[in-house]
């Protein structure tokens, strides 16, 4: 290690005289840290907003965090904002953080969100009773894999999205085994593989997303969401269980920020307040990465270039 350190120190010393070329922005202004998660639209949107803020002279850094734990990080100021607060997925975490304090609601995107069990259209050929969940359950054997035996496989989102798929299977007594995908991309990989053979498949999906454009499909219709379905067992068809309803069909998509952000970076905060994306715009962003295979940073550049009319008005 000594040689390593010596070499390093030597490196620093050797570079010192050359450092004049480095950026002279040595200002003390702290970077704005934007969290990114494991689905594409959020990553690209974060990069888009990050690059917009950079045009205003801010220094932006990205940090990968868990999408549930991030609300704790926002509260503590470890990260400055969260650009996609999905009602169905993160409403609970967001509300809990609001109660503890430290986080502010920066308004909604102009988008409607829904996330639930979903299937591509070819599945319906094999199981015509869809989209009803009872019909789905009757066809469970169609979705079986060697690993799940004679039960059907439901491919849920990554474990840390806390989708409660398992709870729903139990509360509605369905013949399904819940398998969690490693990431959103894994969902698309499985969908792609199933498409080749037109194999029936049921996965977790959401809108806005690029997937609806690539693979036409429908959400499974579960018992309609009622408030309290996730907190009160008596709500929903099964009187003894939670999560016995579908997710809200028209959820919000919010932006959230650390409550110290407004004081620390007022201009950036103002921009964040103005930011608002629509369903097609968000799907487009996801597509740039998931289908066109761009790096998120490039995807953001492409999107900004293609849509100057949308974002230039947000910058004051």
């Amino acid at each position: 290690m000594k040689t390593m350190t010596t070499a390093l120190t030597a490196g620093v010393l050797a570079l010192a005289p050359l450092s004049a070329f480095a950026d002279s922005h040595a200002d003390s202004s702290d970077p704005i840290v934007i969290p990114i998660h494991n689905w594409s639209s959020q990553i690209v949107m974060s990069n888009v907003v990050g690059q917009i803020l950079e045009t205003q002279g801010a220094i932006v850094e990205y940090v990968t965090t868990d999408s549930q734990a991030v609300y704790e990080s926002v509260r503590l100021g470890d990260v400055a904002m969260e650009l996609e607060v999905w009602e169905g997925a993160f409403g609970a975490s967001f509300r809990a953080a609001m109660e503890k304090g430290g986080i502010v609601d920066v308004g909604d995107h102009n988008a409607v969100t829904r996330e639930d069990w979903w299937y591509p259209m070819w599945t319906k050929d094999a199981c015509p009773g869809l989209p009803s969940w009872e019909a789905l359950n009757d066809c469970a054997a169609l979705f079986a894999t060697p690993e799940t035996g004679d039960k059907g496989r439901y491919l849920d989102g990554p474990v840390d999205w806390l989708k409660h798929g398992q709870e729903r299977v139990e509360s509605l007594d369905m013949d399904f085994v819940v398998v969690n995908a490693g990431s959103a991309a894994a969902l698309w990989a499985e969908l792609g593989a199933a498409e080749a053979e037109k194999k029936p498949i049921v996965v977790f999906n959401w809108t806005p997303n690029f997937a609806e454009a690539v693979w036409p499909g429908e959400f499974v219709e579960f018992p309609t969401w009622e408030d309290g379905c996730d907190t009160d067992p008596s709500v929903g068809p099964n009187p003894d269980a939670l999560f016995d309803c579908g997710n809200p069909a028209t959820g919000y998509l919010k932006k959230a920020a650390w409550d110290g952000m407004e004081d620390k970076w007022p201009a950036a905060f103002a921009t964040l307040e103005a930011v608002s994306f629509t369903n097609p715009q968000i799907a487009e962003m996801a597509k740039l990465v998931d289908i066109d295979e761009l790096e998120p940073k490039e995807a953001a550049e492409v999107w900004l270039e293609a849509n100057p009319g949308v974002w230039e008005t947000w910058v004051k």
Binding site: T3, L8, G11, S19, A22, P31, I59, E61
Partner: peptide
């Protein structure tokens, strides 16, 4: 120093050729 993160001491990033060279020198010794 390693990948040019925008922080003090604002020297980096070290050229990849330099890092590879140093690794070779240490390896040789």
């Amino acid at each position: 120093i390693f990948f040019g993160k925008y922080r003090w001491p604002h020297l980096g990033p070290m050229p990849w050729t330099a890092v590879a060279g140093v690794a070779a020198v240490i390896g040789y010794s």
